[in-house]
Design a protein around this nucleic acid. Structure first.
Lengths: 114, 114
DNA sequence: ATATTATATAAGCAATTGATTATATGATAG
DNA sequence: CTATCATATAATCAATTGCTTATATAATAT
Protein backbone atom coordinates (compact mmCIF):
# COMPACT_ATOMS: atom_id res chain seq x y z
CA UNK A 1 0.00 0.00 0.00
CA UNK A 2 1.77 3.09 -1.24
CA UNK A 3 -0.63 5.76 -0.04
CA UNK A 4 -3.09 6.02 2.85
CA UNK A 5 -6.42 4.62 1.83
CA UNK A 6 -9.72 6.41 1.72
CA UNK A 7 -13.04 4.55 1.80
CA UNK A 8 -14.86 4.34 -1.51
CA UNK A 9 -17.94 6.09 -0.11
CA UNK A 10 -15.94 9.00 1.27
CA UNK A 11 -13.93 9.28 -1.93
CA UNK A 12 -17.12 9.35 -4.02
CA UNK A 13 -18.54 12.09 -1.79
CA UNK A 14 -15.41 14.21 -2.20
CA UNK A 15 -15.15 13.59 -5.93
CA UNK A 16 -18.78 14.54 -6.45
CA UNK A 17 -18.10 17.83 -4.68
CA UNK A 18 -14.98 18.47 -6.75
CA UNK A 19 -16.81 17.47 -9.91
CA UNK A 20 -18.10 21.00 -10.18
CA UNK A 21 -15.97 23.52 -12.01
CA UNK A 22 -16.54 26.31 -9.50
CA UNK A 23 -15.69 24.21 -6.44
CA UNK A 24 -12.74 22.51 -8.11
CA UNK A 25 -11.31 25.90 -9.09
CA UNK A 26 -11.89 27.22 -5.58
CA UNK A 27 -9.94 24.35 -4.06
CA UNK A 28 -7.08 24.81 -6.53
CA UNK A 29 -7.01 28.54 -5.79
CA UNK A 30 -6.94 27.88 -2.04
CA UNK A 31 -3.89 25.71 -2.59
CA UNK A 32 -1.94 28.92 -3.29
CA UNK A 33 -3.47 31.19 -0.65
CA UNK A 34 -6.60 32.09 1.25
CA UNK A 35 -9.59 33.96 -0.09
CA UNK A 36 -12.58 35.70 1.39
CA UNK A 37 -16.12 35.15 0.17
CA UNK A 38 -16.36 38.52 -1.57
CA UNK A 39 -13.29 37.75 -3.67
CA UNK A 40 -14.82 34.51 -4.89
CA UNK A 41 -17.99 36.40 -5.74
CA UNK A 42 -16.02 38.75 -7.98
CA UNK A 43 -14.04 35.97 -9.57
CA UNK A 44 -16.83 33.56 -10.39
CA UNK A 45 -19.46 36.09 -11.46
CA UNK A 46 -22.24 34.39 -9.57
CA UNK A 47 -24.36 35.60 -6.68
CA UNK A 48 -22.99 35.77 -3.15
CA UNK A 49 -25.40 33.09 -1.90
CA UNK A 50 -24.22 30.74 -4.65
CA UNK A 51 -20.64 31.17 -3.42
CA UNK A 52 -21.66 30.68 0.20
CA UNK A 53 -23.43 27.46 -0.71
CA UNK A 54 -20.40 26.08 -2.53
CA UNK A 55 -18.16 26.95 0.42
CA UNK A 56 -20.58 25.37 2.86
CA UNK A 57 -20.48 22.08 0.98
CA UNK A 58 -16.69 22.13 0.98
CA UNK A 59 -16.68 22.94 4.68
CA UNK A 60 -19.21 20.22 5.50
CA UNK A 61 -16.88 17.51 4.20
CA UNK A 62 -13.95 19.12 5.95
CA UNK A 63 -11.98 20.29 2.93
CA UNK A 64 -11.93 23.95 3.91
CA UNK A 65 -11.98 25.96 7.12
CA UNK A 66 -13.24 29.44 7.79
CA UNK A 67 -11.75 32.16 9.97
CA UNK A 68 -13.50 35.38 10.74
CA UNK A 69 -11.38 38.48 10.26
CA UNK A 70 -13.45 41.48 11.18
CA UNK A 71 -16.48 41.53 8.96
CA UNK A 72 -14.87 39.18 6.45
CA UNK A 73 -14.69 35.44 6.54
CA UNK A 74 -11.51 33.98 5.15
CA UNK A 75 -11.55 30.47 3.74
CA UNK A 76 -8.50 28.23 3.62
CA UNK A 77 -7.67 24.63 2.78
CA UNK A 78 -7.99 22.35 5.78
CA UNK A 79 -4.62 20.65 5.53
CA UNK A 80 -5.38 18.69 8.67
CA UNK A 81 -8.19 16.77 7.00
CA UNK A 82 -7.83 12.99 6.92
CA UNK A 83 -8.36 13.15 3.19
CA UNK A 84 -6.10 16.07 2.48
CA UNK A 85 -3.44 14.02 0.73
CA UNK A 86 -6.06 12.53 -1.56
CA UNK A 87 -7.22 16.01 -2.53
CA UNK A 88 -3.71 17.42 -2.71
CA UNK A 89 -2.53 14.70 -5.11
CA UNK A 90 -5.56 15.39 -7.23
CA UNK A 91 -5.18 19.16 -7.50
CA UNK A 92 -1.48 18.80 -8.22
CA UNK A 93 -2.62 17.79 -11.70
CA UNK A 94 -4.48 21.05 -12.26
CA UNK A 95 -3.06 24.21 -13.78
CA UNK A 96 -2.32 27.04 -11.38
CA UNK A 97 -5.13 29.57 -11.08
CA UNK A 98 -3.15 32.54 -9.80
CA UNK A 99 -4.07 34.51 -12.91
CA UNK A 100 -7.51 34.89 -11.36
CA UNK A 101 -5.97 36.71 -8.44
CA UNK A 102 -4.05 38.95 -10.83
CA UNK A 103 -7.26 39.80 -12.66
CA UNK A 104 -8.80 40.74 -9.32
CA UNK A 105 -5.89 43.00 -8.47
CA UNK A 106 -6.03 44.68 -11.85
CA UNK A 107 -9.64 45.54 -11.12
CA UNK A 108 -8.71 46.83 -7.68
CA UNK A 109 -11.00 44.31 -6.04
CA UNK A 110 -8.44 42.38 -4.08
CA UNK A 111 -7.86 45.17 -1.57
CA UNK A 112 -11.46 45.17 -0.39
CA UNK A 113 -10.99 42.61 2.37
CA UNK A 114 -7.60 43.57 3.71
CA UNK B 1 5.58 21.01 -12.96
CA UNK B 2 5.71 17.56 -11.44
CA UNK B 3 2.84 15.90 -13.26
CA UNK B 4 1.15 16.41 -16.64
CA UNK B 5 -1.62 18.96 -16.34
CA UNK B 6 -5.26 18.45 -17.07
CA UNK B 7 -7.60 21.33 -17.82
CA UNK B 8 -9.94 22.32 -15.01
CA UNK B 9 -13.03 21.69 -17.15
CA UNK B 10 -11.92 18.21 -18.15
CA UNK B 11 -10.93 17.38 -14.59
CA UNK B 12 -14.33 18.52 -13.30
CA UNK B 13 -16.06 16.36 -15.89
CA UNK B 14 -14.07 13.29 -14.88
CA UNK B 15 -14.46 13.95 -11.16
CA UNK B 16 -18.20 14.36 -11.52
CA UNK B 17 -18.33 10.97 -13.24
CA UNK B 18 -16.20 9.36 -10.54
CA UNK B 19 -18.23 11.06 -7.84
CA UNK B 20 -20.71 8.22 -8.04
CA UNK B 21 -20.07 5.19 -5.87
CA UNK B 22 -21.00 2.68 -8.56
CA UNK B 23 -18.78 4.20 -11.24
CA UNK B 24 -15.90 4.84 -8.88
CA UNK B 25 -16.01 1.22 -7.74
CA UNK B 26 -16.19 0.03 -11.35
CA UNK B 27 -13.05 1.98 -12.25
CA UNK B 28 -11.20 0.64 -9.22
CA UNK B 29 -12.26 -2.90 -10.08
CA UNK B 30 -11.11 -2.47 -13.67
CA UNK B 31 -7.71 -1.49 -12.36
CA UNK B 32 -7.24 -5.14 -11.37
CA UNK B 33 -8.81 -6.83 -14.36
CA UNK B 34 -11.52 -6.64 -16.98
CA UNK B 35 -15.21 -7.29 -16.44
CA UNK B 36 -18.18 -7.96 -18.64
CA UNK B 37 -21.49 -6.15 -18.24
CA UNK B 38 -23.28 -9.13 -16.75
CA UNK B 39 -20.72 -9.40 -13.96
CA UNK B 40 -21.25 -5.78 -13.00
CA UNK B 41 -24.98 -6.41 -12.97
CA UNK B 42 -24.53 -9.21 -10.43
CA UNK B 43 -22.13 -7.22 -8.31
CA UNK B 44 -24.01 -3.95 -8.07
CA UNK B 45 -27.52 -5.34 -7.74
CA UNK B 46 -29.03 -2.87 -10.13
CA UNK B 47 -30.69 -3.39 -13.50
CA UNK B 48 -28.69 -4.18 -16.61
CA UNK B 49 -29.67 -0.89 -18.28
CA UNK B 50 -28.42 1.00 -15.22
CA UNK B 51 -25.03 -0.68 -15.61
CA UNK B 52 -24.95 -0.02 -19.35
CA UNK B 53 -25.66 3.64 -18.72
CA UNK B 54 -22.83 3.95 -16.20
CA UNK B 55 -20.42 2.25 -18.60
CA UNK B 56 -21.52 4.46 -21.46
CA UNK B 57 -20.68 7.58 -19.47
CA UNK B 58 -17.26 6.21 -18.59
CA UNK B 59 -16.70 5.31 -22.23
CA UNK B 60 -17.86 8.70 -23.48
CA UNK B 61 -15.08 10.49 -21.58
CA UNK B 62 -12.59 7.86 -22.68
CA UNK B 63 -11.89 6.22 -19.34
CA UNK B 64 -12.90 2.72 -20.44
CA UNK B 65 -12.89 0.73 -23.64
CA UNK B 66 -15.12 -2.10 -24.75
CA UNK B 67 -14.21 -5.25 -26.64
CA UNK B 68 -16.75 -7.69 -27.94
CA UNK B 69 -16.02 -11.31 -27.12
CA UNK B 70 -18.74 -13.43 -28.65
CA UNK B 71 -22.02 -12.35 -27.15
CA UNK B 72 -20.31 -10.61 -24.25
CA UNK B 73 -18.82 -7.16 -24.13
CA UNK B 74 -15.74 -6.83 -21.98
CA UNK B 75 -14.89 -3.50 -20.46
CA UNK B 76 -11.35 -2.47 -19.55
CA UNK B 77 -9.53 0.64 -18.41
CA UNK B 78 -8.34 2.77 -21.28
CA UNK B 79 -4.75 3.18 -20.21
CA UNK B 80 -4.03 5.15 -23.36
CA UNK B 81 -6.31 7.98 -22.30
CA UNK B 82 -4.67 11.40 -21.97
CA UNK B 83 -6.06 11.58 -18.48
CA UNK B 84 -5.19 8.09 -17.38
CA UNK B 85 -2.45 9.16 -14.98
CA UNK B 86 -4.83 11.56 -13.29
CA UNK B 87 -7.33 8.76 -12.76
CA UNK B 88 -4.68 6.21 -11.84
CA UNK B 89 -3.21 8.44 -9.12
CA UNK B 90 -6.68 8.96 -7.79
CA UNK B 91 -7.72 5.31 -7.61
CA UNK B 92 -4.40 4.38 -6.04
CA UNK B 93 -5.87 5.87 -2.87
CA UNK B 94 -8.83 3.50 -2.89
CA UNK B 95 -9.00 0.09 -1.22
CA UNK B 96 -8.75 -2.91 -3.49
CA UNK B 97 -12.14 -4.31 -4.54
CA UNK B 98 -11.09 -7.85 -5.45
CA UNK B 99 -13.33 -9.23 -2.71
CA UNK B 100 -16.22 -8.46 -5.03
CA UNK B 101 -14.80 -10.84 -7.59
CA UNK B 102 -14.41 -13.50 -4.92
CA UNK B 103 -18.03 -13.09 -3.92
CA UNK B 104 -18.99 -13.55 -7.55
CA UNK B 105 -16.94 -16.72 -7.80
CA UNK B 106 -18.44 -18.11 -4.62
CA UNK B 107 -21.86 -17.68 -6.18
CA UNK B 108 -20.68 -19.35 -9.37
CA UNK B 109 -21.51 -16.27 -11.39
CA UNK B 110 -18.04 -15.47 -12.63
CA UNK B 111 -17.94 -18.37 -15.08
CA UNK B 112 -20.91 -17.10 -17.05
CA UNK B 113 -18.94 -14.99 -19.49
CA UNK B 114 -15.92 -17.21 -20.10
C1' DA C 1 -35.34 -19.61 -39.43
C1' DT C 2 -36.35 -19.17 -34.51
C1' DA C 3 -35.38 -18.91 -29.70
C1' DT C 4 -32.25 -17.46 -26.32
C1' DT C 5 -28.78 -14.68 -24.22
C1' DA C 6 -26.15 -10.30 -23.69
C1' DT C 7 -26.18 -5.61 -24.25
C1' DA C 8 -27.84 -0.95 -25.72
C1' DT C 9 -31.21 2.57 -26.25
C1' DA C 10 -35.58 5.08 -25.26
C1' DA C 11 -39.00 6.93 -22.35
C1' DG C 12 -40.61 8.23 -17.95
C1' DC C 13 -40.08 9.70 -13.22
C1' DA C 14 -38.56 10.96 -8.48
C1' DA C 15 -34.53 12.87 -6.25
C1' DT C 16 -30.72 15.94 -6.38
C1' DT C 17 -28.30 19.97 -7.88
C1' DG C 18 -26.96 24.74 -8.66
C1' DA C 19 -28.66 28.88 -9.48
C1' DT C 20 -31.71 32.89 -8.16
C1' DT C 21 -34.24 36.30 -5.03
C1' DA C 22 -35.58 37.49 -0.43
C1' DT C 23 -34.41 37.67 4.19
C1' DA C 24 -31.69 36.98 8.51
C1' DT C 25 -27.43 37.42 11.14
C1' DG C 26 -23.29 39.55 12.61
C1' DA C 27 -19.60 42.98 12.63
C1' DT C 28 -18.15 47.78 11.96
C1' DA C 29 -18.80 52.82 11.40
C1' DG C 30 -21.00 57.08 12.21
C1' DC D 1 -28.77 53.19 18.21
C1' DT D 2 -28.86 53.00 13.35
C1' DA D 3 -26.98 52.35 8.86
C1' DT D 4 -23.94 49.76 6.16
C1' DC D 5 -21.25 45.95 4.67
C1' DA D 6 -20.15 40.87 4.53
C1' DT D 7 -21.98 36.55 4.89
C1' DA D 8 -25.44 32.83 5.77
C1' DT D 9 -29.88 30.76 5.35
C1' DA D 10 -34.51 29.93 3.32
C1' DA D 11 -37.55 29.32 -0.40
C1' DT D 12 -38.12 28.46 -5.14
C1' DC D 13 -37.26 26.61 -9.66
C1' DA D 14 -35.32 24.66 -13.94
C1' DA D 15 -31.87 21.38 -15.28
C1' DT D 16 -29.54 17.16 -14.43
C1' DT D 17 -29.09 12.60 -12.56
C1' DG D 18 -29.81 7.72 -11.81
C1' DC D 19 -33.00 4.53 -11.64
C1' DT D 20 -36.87 1.74 -13.67
C1' DT D 21 -39.57 -0.70 -17.46
C1' DA D 22 -40.11 -1.50 -22.30
C1' DT D 23 -38.02 -2.25 -26.51
C1' DA D 24 -34.25 -2.73 -30.02
C1' DT D 25 -29.95 -4.82 -31.62
C1' DA D 26 -26.53 -8.34 -32.07
C1' DA D 27 -24.48 -12.79 -31.37
C1' DT D 28 -25.09 -17.80 -30.43
C1' DA D 29 -27.55 -22.19 -30.24
C1' DT D 30 -30.98 -25.40 -31.81
Amino acid sequence: MLVPEIKIEKAATILKLLGDKTRLTMIKMLDSHDYCVCEFVEIFKVSQPAISQHLRKLKDVGLVRETRKGQWIIYSLNKGSDDFLFVQNLIDHLPNQDFKLQELEEQGLRISCE
